[in-house]
Design a protein around this nucleic acid. Structure first.
Length: 386
RNA sequence: GUGGCUGUGGCCUAGCGGUUAAGGCGCCAGAUUGUGGAUCUGGAGAUCGCGGGUUCAAAUCCCGUCAGCCACC
């Protein structure tokens, strides 16, 4: 793991210094891709980086030890879920998120906004915030920008996210424009509400597939000077071309010396495209959710472990992969675990998928440094197939 | 040995005279993007135990037979 524990950094972080710092260390010549280093209170990570999703303060199925072996050190946790259960005050009382879940590397928490729109019942948005009903017990709750920041400060992640409004798609441009206006206004309130000098805050660019809205949102956020910038509301059904344009126009306006985070994107093809557009960070449920459901990433495309074709296959998921699933076990055994509904199946497949994405971003970093990213991207996309 | 009950895709069942025998599980595939160990969508698979009869028409009614279960000699 490239992130090393540095508990002491938190206490001694000098006032006036950014809680996280980013520097691009190599740039690709044929695209906007870049490699860099992100320093956080809990250690440094190299970018581009993929962050596994640990919704409820756990990356499902993996112990911290297994997780450390399967990722590049930085993970994501979910504000919405943790605020509802066990409650951020419980996490804070138990020493904060890092200690609570025994993860000493960097953690990023989302704002909870996306889940309010996608999971909670009947979310009602006003300029003040979002009123919604808990998906757990139906309680009527409210999430405001100030509350989102307070929850995330109590959780204590290295990076917090602004509350944004993720508009449903498809939507009329007028509605997306309103969401952009709210996202900008809420970002300002989040920034004003923050109080921890050891926690970074990222702004989120919205705007759907509209280049003018993306551009305006990015410009307004940059004027507020965030520690990093995310692109949200992407890969929820748009065409590949629409995604590319939304990314290009957003990234173009973001400062060189701040990390750029594409939220919720995780197919290998999408990572290659997004890094080419200048993105540094990713998170996605896909490697772990698909892993739990027996679908695995390989350079030759997806492998569906439940398929009968693997019943007697002695080969590993992927030749040369150094993950536990590939070093120790055959496809036939992994399939057997899923058919028999054994919990080791989801665990091993999750490990492999995370290791696959880690290897993919590592290959991209290396290629960027060596000036051959464009070729790597074409080669991998070609091998992955449609 | 006698009487009774039951036999419908791999498994469990619905249908009890009238299009092309229905459903669940399983099986075979596909979907999954700021988390659902969830879910959804397709597909294959049945000469209705077997043989005969009644009828325009039988999984369905009748006879025989085989198998399983139950009860009684």
């Amino acid at each position: 793991m490239s992130a090393t524990p540095r508990e002491a950094t938190r206490a001694t972080a000098p006032v006036g210094v950014r809680p996280v710092r980013f520097a691009a260390t190599a740039r690709d010549v044929g695209s906007s891709a870049r490699a860099g280093v992100l320093e956080t209170p809990h250690g440094s990570v190299e970018t581009p980086i993929f962050m596994p999703v640990g919704t409820q303060a756990t990356v499902k199925g993996l112990t911290p030890g297994l997780l450390r072996e399967a990722c590049d050190g930085m993970i994501l946790a979910n504000t919405y879920h943790l605020a509802l259960r066990p409650g951020e005050e419980v996490v804070a009382a138990l020493g904060g998120l890092h200690r609570f879940m025994a993860w000493d590397g960097p953690i990023l928490t989302d704002s909870g906004g996306f889940q309010v729109f996608s999971m909670a019942d009947k979310a009602k948005v006003t300029d003040r915030g979002v009123a919604f009903r808990s998906h757990l017990d139906g309680r009527l709750l409210e999430l405001t920008p100030e509350r989102a920041v307070a929850i995330q400060e109590a959780l204590g992640a290295d990076v917090a996210m602004c509350l944004d409004q993720c508009p449903p798609l498809p939507a009329e441009k007028r509605l997306i424009e309103r969401a952009v206006d709210r996202t900008i206004a809420w970002a300002a309130r989040c920034k004003a509400a923050r109080s921890r000098p050891d926690q970074a805050l990222f702004g989120i660019v919205q705007g759907g597939a509209h280049e003018d809205l993306r551009g305006r949102c990015a410009a307004e956020l940059v004027a507020m000077d965030f520690d990093g910038y995310a692109v949200g509301g992407v890969s929820v059904g748009e065409s590949r071309e629409e995604v590319r344009k939304a990314l290009d126009v957003s990234v173009h306006l973001l400062p060189e010396d701040r990390p750029r985070y594409l939220m919720g994107v995780g197919r290998p093809q999408d990572l290659l495209d997004a890094v080419a557009a200048g993105i540094d960070m990713f998170d996605c449920v896909m490697p772990t959710r698909n892993g739990r459901n027996a679908t695995c990433f390989t350079d030759a495309g997806l492998i569906k472990l439940r398929n009968a074709a693997h019943a007697r296959d002695p080969r590993p998921l992927e030749e040369g992969c150094d993950c536990l699933a590939c070093v120790k076990f055959s496809r036939a055994y992994l399939r057997h675990l899923f058919i028999a509904k054994e919990m080791l199946g989801p665990i091993l497949a999750s490990i492999h998928n995370l290791a696959y994405l880690r290897r993919l971003v590592r290959r991209m970093r290396e290629a960027i440094r060596e000036g051959r990213f464009v070729q790597l991207r074409l080669d991998v996309l070609d091998a992955l197939g449609p």
